[in-house]
Design a protein around this nucleic acid. Structure first.
Length: 410
RNA sequence: GGCCCUAUCGUCUAUCGGCUAGGACACAGCCUUCUCAAGGCUGUAAGCGGAGUUCGAUUCUCCGUAGGGUCACCA
């Protein structure tokens, strides 16, 4: 490990604004954030927007909004690579002067598939093939047989290539630990080549495993919500997302499963990160969300509950009732009709339905009322639905159920 | 295909050579008349294969197998 422990820890998340914030990126950001806070270091956000064709402001906005939703914010103003073009050029010129790099007209560059662009020149670093070895905090020693003989550092349009920009920025910003996705392992040797050419120090590397789809393939749009803010829009708690994401690929070695951010910061340990990829399990995430929900004040829970049923089919459309399902357990249709009529009266008068249910038998009253209102096997409790619908809509649904029961009796 | 990474219940994982392999989610069954969600209890379920090291391997080494990543003037 080459980092100097006396120095303050500085880490970063470096997303490129070419799509919405992905759960994988969010977790990488979280691990960086936890590590920084744990060691009283700094966490910063750098937008890698050197690809002008694919970068869009709306994606940048989405990414920043998603991170903020999770409570992950940059300790310094957000950096944009697109504003640092001159810096990269200067370093490239330096390399040319030292004889380590050379300019080439696009047509002369043979190993790329690209066709010719114009009269501008790209800059390429010369590199003797050699073995590169580095230490990864999570995986130990990683050895690469060789490195490419030519590495493009400046594109013909004057913008830096990814690897070049990363190495320069990480150095200029004093990044001590590069914590990123496993998909960057194969970039590491060429970044080391570049950083050595520039005379920089190596950061400590930690490559965290990927988040996988249920079929162990790469997580993508066809697997449902991979955009982080979709979860927010579906009513999930940011605390739950932080908790679940942290547990995907990491655990403190105890049996604790529910954490708040502060606890994660205290217990986080890079060395305890898993090596293999992990599947994002929607079901377990829901459970984590539920656990966090329980910790909320009741009024808050109720608000979220009401919002979450907004789009249920039984709320939007008319429920289709099955007469046989209206009575509670073994209760008779006649008795159930009576009780529903009783409930109807109470609702009309604005009386206390719960008190009525307690008098007549909770299940016998509450089940048919709830079922009459929703037609669903499971839903929030009838009192909540009642509040949601209001008197008029509730009464009309109750009447339908009563008529249905009576017709059945004949 | 080359290079690289990985491999414990269906899923997330514990185990840092001694295991009757533990927990959680999911699933199944039972209980709970404060409806449903919930809650409680119980149960089913795992060390990829083959060598080696060792008194002893899930744990260490090698080979195989499988999965993943990466091979751009994208990031």
């Amino acid at each position: 490990m080459s980092a100097d422990n006396r120095n303050q820890v500085i880490v970063r998340i470096a997303p490129s604004p070419t799509g919405n914030l992905h759960v994988g990126t969010a977790r990488t950001a979280l691990f960086n954030y936890l590590f920084a806070k744990k060691h009283d270091g700094k966490f910063l956000i750098r937008i890698e927007d050197t690809d002008v064709k694919r970068s869009e402001k709306k994606y940048e906005k989405n990414i920043l909004e998603g991170l903020e939703w999770l409570g992950i914010t940059s300790d310094v103003p957000i950096i944009h690579q697109s504003k640092r073009t001159e810096v990269y050029k200067k370093y490239a010129e330096e390399l040319i002067k030292k004889g380590l790099a050379y300019e080439v007209r696009s047509g002369e560059f043979q190993s790329g598939k690209s066709t010719w662009i114009g009269m501008k020149k790209a800059v390429i670093l010369k590199n003797p093939k050699r073995e590169i070895v580095f230490t990864d905090v999570i995986r130990g020693e990683i050895k690469f047989e060789d490195t490419p003989e030519e590495i493009v550092i400046l594109k013909s349009d004057g913008t830096p290539t990814y690897n070049f920009a990363v190495v320069i920025d990480d150095n200029d910003m004093g990044i001590t630990h590069v914590i990123r996705g496993e998909d960057h392992i194969s970039n590491t040797p060429r970044q080391i080549v570049l950083l050595e050419a520039l005379g920089f120090n190596r950061p400590v590397y930690a490559h965290i495993p990927m988040i996988l789809a249920p079929d162990r393939s790469k997580l993508s749009k066809r697997h449902g919500a991979v955009s982080l803010l979709d979860y927010r829009d579906n009513g999930y708690l940011p605390e739950a997302m932080v908790n679940y994401l942290a547990l995907l690929g990491w655990n403190p070695g105890t049996e604790q499963e529910i954490f708040i951010m502060q606890e994660l910061i205290e217990q986080f340990d890079l060395g305890k990160i898993q090596k293999g990829g992990a599947i994002f399990d929607e079901k377990k995430f829901q459970w984590v969300n539920k656990e966090h929900m329980k910790r909320l004040p009741e009024a808050e829970q109720r608000k979220i509950l009401l919002k979450s049923i907004e789009n249920e089919p039984y709320i939007i459309g008319e429920p289709e009732l099955e007469p046989a399902k209206i009575p509670w357990k073994k209760n008779s249709k006649e008795r159930t009709a009576e009780l529903l009529e009783g409930a109807e009266k109470i609702i009309e008068e604005g009386g206390d339905l719960l008190a009525y249910a307690e008098r007549e038998g909770k299940g016998d009253v509450l089940w048919p009322v709830r079922y009459a209102l929703t037609g669903a096997e499971s839903s929030p409790d009838p009192l909540t639905i009642l509040e949601f619908f209001g008197k008029e809509k509730s009464l009309s649904r109750l009447k339908k159920a009563i008529i249905m029961l009576k017709n059945e009796q004949i």
